[in-house]
Every structure is written in C-alpha cells, then in structure tokens.
Amino acid sequence: MVKLLIIEDDEAAAGSLKRGLAEAGYAVELAHDGERGLQQAQAGDHDLWVIDIMLPGRDGLSVLKALRDQGRRTPALILSALGKVDDRVEGLRVGGDDYVVKPYAFDELLARIEALLRRVRSFGSGPETMLELADLKMDLLSRSVTRGGQEIDLQPREFRLLEYLMRHAGQVVTRTMLLENVWEYFFDPQTNVVDVHISRLRQKIDKSFATPLLHTVRGRGYILRPEA
C-alpha cells in the first residue's frame, strides 16, 4: 500500500483529507506540527509527503529543507496559504516537487499526488523515445503521431498536450495541471480555454476510430485510457 504523510496543523482539514485519501486507497499518517512532522518523516518510509507551509512552530519550508539536507528524496507536495504568490517558487526552491494553493479542490490534490507518484515510478527508466497507448503511438524523436498506423497531424501545442496526457495515461489530469505543464501559465483564466483544446485534440485522435481514448471525467478533468 502506498504510504503518505500529511503534515497539516488544521486538524479538521487534515481529517477530511485523510479520509478522502484513504478512500482513494492510500495509507495515510498525520502530523499536526512541523517538529513532529519532521520526526515522522525521518522515522517512516513514506512514498510521498504533503506539507503545509504555515505550521505552528517550525514551518513547512524549513521542515522540507531539513529533510532534503539529510538527503531524503521522497516526493513532496506543498500546500500554501491563499494568495501567497511567492510560495510556489520558494517551495520548489527548497525541494518541493509540486504545489497546491489552499483552499484547493480535493480532486486537484489527488490528481497531483497521483502524478507525482507516477513520476517517481517511471524515474530512472531512461529517456523515452516512444510513447504508446493501445494503437496510439507517439514518436518523440520524429515528433510524429499515428493511430492504427494512420498518421495524425498535430500542431506543436497539440503534440505537447497529447504527450503530457500519454505520460499520465490512466490517470486523471486537471485543467490546471494542463495549463501549468503544457502552456506554462500558473493561473486559471476565466474562459474554459483548455476544454476547447481538448475537444480539438479529441477530434483528431478519436473521431474516426471505434474506441475513444480521451475521456472527460466530470468535474475533475481528463483521462487518456483505452477503456471508457
């Protein structure tokens, strides 16, 4: 079972987070302040840490920095207070791997945890040159895409979008994750810009084929997978 440590002082928030993550199949351990969080992280063999920045006593950034200084490389997702624009940069600088602003949507956090765990699992397998999902193939060197042997013509951005989806195949990715990773914008526009790009991509990769690969997960985001 995948083990998570959540360092979060708001016990009510930590409690519902724990319940949600347990329902998603994770073993969850809680710590309510920085000092104890640090000890639990050092003592445990967690697969991922979720660390709130604003903690009583020792703050989250200093906890993470201490852990990184000890050479611990467990992936860390940082939770920051609303509106602290600089926390993202600061958090990534001390060794955070991803970052979510409070108040966050549970699904956003879950999707990012899954993406981080996935990234760790595929780490060390060397640079890939080919991505495949069912009969969809992406050649990263020649930058070409085929489905069922048939060439699919993609714009450069559509290629990046599909590449990101293929690297996270089988896993929900949110609109915000796509904006950050495919377009490199760290804010959410009002207009549903991502949705329309997704539906254009879907036209190209799914329209003339029997089994759709790119699915919308209502209220959460998108998932690329062979079954509905």
């Binding site: 624009v85 600089d86 940069v89 951005r157 377009w183 207009t191 549903n192 810009v193 329309v196 790009h197 254009r200």
Partner: peptide
C-alpha cells in the same frame, strides 16, 4: 508587496501563444 520576477520576455512570442490559447474558445 507582490514580488515581480522580471526577465527578458519575448513579448511577440507570448502574445502569439496567448492568441493560440484563446482562438478555439473565441471560435466556439
């Protein structure tokens, strides 16, 4: 108090990118 991270930005490129981002929504 908002920290501004100034760097040289290719404004022409950025604007083209933003148009590309919004065109499908505009057409819709």
């Amino acid at each position: 108090v908002m920290r501004v991270r100034k760097k040289t930005v290719d404004l022409s490129g950025l604007l083209e990118e933003l148009i590309e981002l919004y065109i499908p929504s505009a057409e819709e």
